[in-house]
Simulated scan of single mutants.
Amino acid sequence: MKGNIEDRACRMALYIIENRATVRACARKFGISKSTVHKDLSERLPAFNRTLYLQVKQVLEENKAERHIRGGIATRKKYKGE
Rank of each mutant, 00 (worst) to 15 (best):
G31C: 09
R8Q: 12
R20F: 00
G72V: 02
R67T: 13
E18W: 12
F48L: 02
H38V: 11
E18H: 13
K80P: 00
S33C: 07
R28I: 08
M12F: 06
E43N: 15
V23P: 01
A9G: 07
M12S: 08
A74Q: 13
G31H: 12
N49L: 01
D40S: 08
A47K: 15
A25N: 12
H38T: 15
P46E: 01
K64T: 09
E43R: 15
E6G: 08
A27D: 03
A47C: 06
A65Y: 10
S33P: 08
I69E: 04
I73A: 10
A25F: 02
Q55F: 08
Y79N: 00
A47I: 12
T75P: 00
T75R: 09
F48R: 02
Y53C: 04
R8H: 09
S35R: 14
A27E: 02
E43Q: 15
K77I: 04
L52P: 03
D7I: 13
A47T: 12
K39Q: 07
E82P: 00
R50M: 04
L52S: 04
S33N: 10
E82G: 04
V59I: 15
E62P: 06
E61R: 14
R24L: 10
M12V: 12
K77A: 05
S35Q: 12
L14Q: 10
V23C: 05
E18A: 11
I17P: 03
G71E: 05
E61D: 15
N63E: 12
K78S: 05
R24S: 11
L52N: 03
T22I: 01
A25I: 04
E61L: 14
D7K: 12
I5G: 01
M1G: 14
A21I: 05
A27N: 07
K80N: 07
N63S: 14
T75H: 05
R67S: 15
Y79D: 00
A27W: 08
S42E: 07
E6L: 09
E61G: 07
K64W: 09
E18T: 09
T22Q: 02
R76I: 06
L45Q: 04
Y53F: 14
Q55N: 13
S42M: 10
A25H: 11
K64E: 06
P46H: 04
K57P: 01
T36V: 14
T36Y: 09
Q58M: 14
I5T: 15
A13Q: 02
I16L: 00
E62V: 14
I16S: 00
L54A: 11
S35L: 09
I17Q: 05
C26P: 10
L14W: 07
C10S: 04
R44P: 02
K34T: 13
R44Y: 10
V56G: 04
T22D: 00
I16R: 01
K57Q: 08
K77G: 06
Y53N: 03
I16G: 01
S42K: 11
R20C: 01
R28P: 03
R76V: 10
G72F: 01
L41S: 05
N63K: 15
A47M: 10
M1L: 14
K39T: 07
